[in-house]
Design a protein around this nucleic acid. Structure first.
Length: 567
RNA sequence: CGGGGCGUAGCUCAGUAUGGUUAGAGUACUUGGUUUGGGACCAAGGGGCCGGAGGUUCGAGUCCUCUCGCCCCGACCA
């Protein structure tokens, strides 16, 4: 491609709405333009990057035996009514009617459609397993699209679905998909972690997220500094604590603690480590039908992890509750404890099981119990409720957990029969009995990956594409096109590189050196060959974008050097 | 969906508190000339329903009401 013939509208100014590096640079360098909230146009460069990612995904899917399909973007609403998700998705589903007044939705994901193409066609265990996928535009009418391509309403996703007759076979495929996804991200040149994720309300038996590590990531991860363990904080576990503060000496007693309400107050009042205090957090748990207040007890040194708390009671949501409401129930804010407490449902953190020497509220204004032995609690609900903190021990090795930020670019999920049962998608097993398909689902955000590459690879000058994602690997830049010898050399180099299968662009624009250099850096081609005045000495320079290195090479040795650099 | 902010040239923004020449700058664009290794300079041009509707006024980019759009924080996000 010749730059002079290309359509690459670069700008000096960033769009005022852009915040993230990926959004700023992808706009400034002419990869995308915004159309409306959460809607983007891909210009020629952006489209090339998108296609490169898709190609790698397709190659790895082919390699792992998955079959590509392409399902209708517009899907009949009946399918969504059948699965019950039309209510669950709510306003995120963009609905509309056709001329015959039939209701349709734009597909936000394709579980229903995928099940529909398989059911009644795959009817025997002999036809299983099956793994089908597509790379397709999706639409979710997000309440708040943001961060450019990172959270758009219209986006490109690879979504795959596998169908199995046994959970063992699902496990095998799940592992195969994890390996395939890992290869895809490695080929793209990204630094990532595969982490354990919250399976959430959808149930299923396991899910993992693929997280591209970047400061701007929306998810917080707990990762081990020694082994491969990593988890979304929503699902992170930690080793049983070994460094335990010295226990306070106290017999069980009811102690007057006037106006001592917070953990800090309590800890200061008794000169005791917060580890030995019990924190009460009351929230209203909202269920599909109805709601109730629930009290979660954790150690004073811990923080409640809301997703874990929500899962522990099977709620779909937890909302804050006012002190006035607590009083109405008969609770005493600041002095709540689990002993002799029958006003509301409560759940205790696993780490409080059999805890001794504890201080907790006495459910009476200005009184706490000290020297509490929680093993007396016996048969109450325990669950993992607390948030993993930086420095906590890894559950798999002796390492420490650290917090880091990640961009969720993939999510693989063991669905089990969550969709096949309501959609009545069944096959006959070896014994001639009808069974629902056991399913897995494997998603990857293709357009989000475009942004993720830049979030992870940029500097203050612009994009730094990895070799596999670059719109063009080599930019041949003619410093001054009026120098006929320079232009002629560049033309020849451009042609030769192209003939050698290297994706190359020739910057033959009638612009000045600085202008073209800035564009090369903003766009982020991995290598720019500068053909300019050095050519008079028989030399050219290669700028390596990632390192800003300038390599001077003999003019007739450029291809060899580039080949070496590309590796 | 709650809270906050912003809509003026292709883009980035002044101008709006206190209504009053022909609505500005930078950049981008067109033409001519000079320049040519880090977003050049000179000159001459084109480009605006001041988001939209209604109102107040002799007069509205500016004041009032309504509306639409976009961004940020939060809630939400199989």
């Amino acid at each position: 491609m010749r730059f002079s013939k290309a359509y690459i509208p670069t700008t000096k100014e960033s769009p005022k709405d852009a915040q993230l590096p990926s959004h700023i640079y992808l706009s400034r360098a002419g990869f995308v333009t915004q159309v409306a909230s959460g809607l983007y146009n891909f210009l020629p460069l952006g489209k090339r990057v998108l296609r490169k990612i898709e190609t790698i995904i397709n190659e790895e899917m082919e390699r792992s035996g998955a079959l590509e399909v392409d399902l209708s973007f517009v899907t009949p609403a009946e399918l969504w009514q059948e699965s019950g998700r039309i209510e669950k998705f709510g306003k995120e589903l963009l609905r509309f009617r056709d001329r015959k007044d039939n209701l349709f939705v734009l597909g936000p994901t394709h579980e229903e459609m995928m099940v529909s193409i398989v059911r009644n066609r795959i009817t025997s265990y002999k036809q299983l397993p099956l793994n089908v996928y597509q790379v397709k535009t999706k639409f979710r009418d997000e309440a708040r699209p943001r961060f450019g391509l990172m959270r758009a309403r219209e986006f490109v996703m690879k979504d795959g679905y596998s169908f199995h007759s046994t959970t063992e076979d699902l496990d095998r495929e799940f592992d195969a998909m994890e390996a395939a996804y890992k290869r895809i991200l490695e080929r793209l040149g990204l630094t990532f972690r595969i982490v354990e994720a919250d399976s959430g309300a959808i149930g299923g038996t396991g899910s993992k997220e693929l997280m591209v590590l970047a400061q701007s990531g929306e998810d917080t991860l707990a990762v081990c500094d020694t082994c491969e363990y990593g988890a979304n904080v929503e699902a992170a576990r930690r080793a049983i604590r070994t460094a335990i503060p010295e226990a306070p000496q106290a017999d069980f007693a009811r102690f007057k603690t006037p106006n001592v309400k917070s953990i800090d107050d309590l800890s200061a009042f008794f000169h005791v480590d917060p580890y030995y205090t019990l924190k009460a957090v009351v929230m209203r748990a909202v269920y599909t039908e109805g709601s109730e207040p629930v009290c979660f007890f954790i150690r004073g040194c811990d923080e409640l992890q809301e997703v874990k708390a929500r899962n522990s009671v099977g709620a779909i949501d937890l909302v804050d509750i006012s002190e006035a409401e607590l009083r109405d129930i008969g609770l005493v804010p600041g002095f709540m404890g689990p002993l002799d407490q029958d006003k509301i449902r409560f759940v205790m953190d696993n780490d409080t099981k059999n805890a001794t020497s504890m201080i907790c509220g006495a459910n009476e204004a200005d009184y706490h119990f000290v020297g509490v032995d929680l093993s007396v609690m016996g048969d109450v609900a325990f669950a993992d409720l607390s948030a993993v903190q930086a420095g906590d021990g890894c559950p798999h090795c002796a390492g420490k957990l650290l917090h880091t930020k990640g961009i969720e670019v993939g999510h693989i999920f063991k669905l089990g029969t969550v969709y096949s049962v309501p959609l009545k998608a069944e096959f006959l097993d070896e014994n001639g009995r009808s069974q629902p398909f056991i399913m897995g689902t494997y998603g990857m955000g293709v357009s989000r990956l475009v942004a993720a590459v830049i979030e992870q690879h940029h500097d203050d000058k612009g994009c730094i594409w990895t070799h596999a994602t670059a719109p063009y690997l080599v930019n041949v830049m003619v410093s001054n096109i009026k120098e006929e010898a320079h232009l002629a050399y560049a033309e020849k180099l451009y042609e030769t590189l192209g003939n050698n299968g290297i994706e190359v662009i020739l910057d033959d624009r009638k612009e000045r050196f600085g202008f073209k250099m800035s564009d090369a850096e903003l766009i982020g081609f991995p290598f720019t060959v500068i053909v300019g005045k050095e050519l008079n000495n028989g030399q050219v320079q290669i700028m390596v974008r990632a390192t800003s290195e300038m390599i001077t090479v003999e003019a007739d040795n450029v291809i060899a050097k580039l080949t070496e650099l590309i590796g």
